[in-house]
């Protein structure tokens, strides 16, 4: 009888140990991480140089011609120096070489507004940094005078 009781006690003890082990294992299992979609945005960057030469606009800048011509009364010659499209994920940075240093674009993520805007930080070398929220398709022209030239950075934001 005692042997039988002993076997029952051992069996119960084993079951209890199994139960505790299972509970402990479950407690140590990390909760499932919700899959988060990687946000991505594209930045088409064109670096343009404006000088006071004869009036002309690079044919590759046809979509900007009207705005460039009205930018400044003294600068009439516009040449495309560089064109690059950068695809960035949240938190990553892209750089653009300018004559006075590197312009940095950092994608901060999409805004939670009804219109999802692309939030990004633009650092102008040695001058300032701005955080911008731009709806897809939006465009900015950053203008800086360096010597006798204007350096214009045309940035078109996309998704």
């Amino acid at each position: 009888m005692s042997a039988m009781w002993s076997k029952t006690a051992v069996l119960r003890g084993a079951l209890l140990a199994l139960l505790l082990a299972a509970t402990a294992a479950q407690a140590q299992t990390p909760p499932p991480v919700p899959t988060q979609a990687v946000e991505r945005a594209s930045f088409q960057v064109r670096v343009i140089e404006a000088t006071k030469g004869a009036a002309s606009v690079d044919p590759k800048l046809a979509d900007l011609e009207r705005e460039l011509r009205s930018l400044h009364r003294d600068y009439a010659h516009f040449a495309l120096i560089k064109s690059d499209t950068q695809s960035l994920t949240t938190g990553t940075r892209g750089t653009v070489r300018l004559p006075n240093g590197e312009l940095i674009i950092q994608f901060l993520g999409l805004s939670a507004d009804k219109v999802q805007r692309v939030r990004h930080r633009v650092e102008m070398p040695g001058l300032n940094a701005t955080v911008r929220a731009v709806a897809p398709g939006g465009r900015t022209l950053d203008v800086l005078q360096l010597g006798d030239k204007l350096v214009i950075v045309a940035t078109t934001v996309g998704r």
Binding site: V115, Q116, R117, R119, T130, V131, R132, A133, V134, A135, P136, G137, G138, R139, T140
Partner: peptide, 10 residues
């Protein structure tokens, strides 16, 4: 949507 509006936040 896609109106291209630009905000300078900071």
């Amino acid at each position: 949507p896609d109106d291209g509006s630009v905000f300078i936040e900071e």
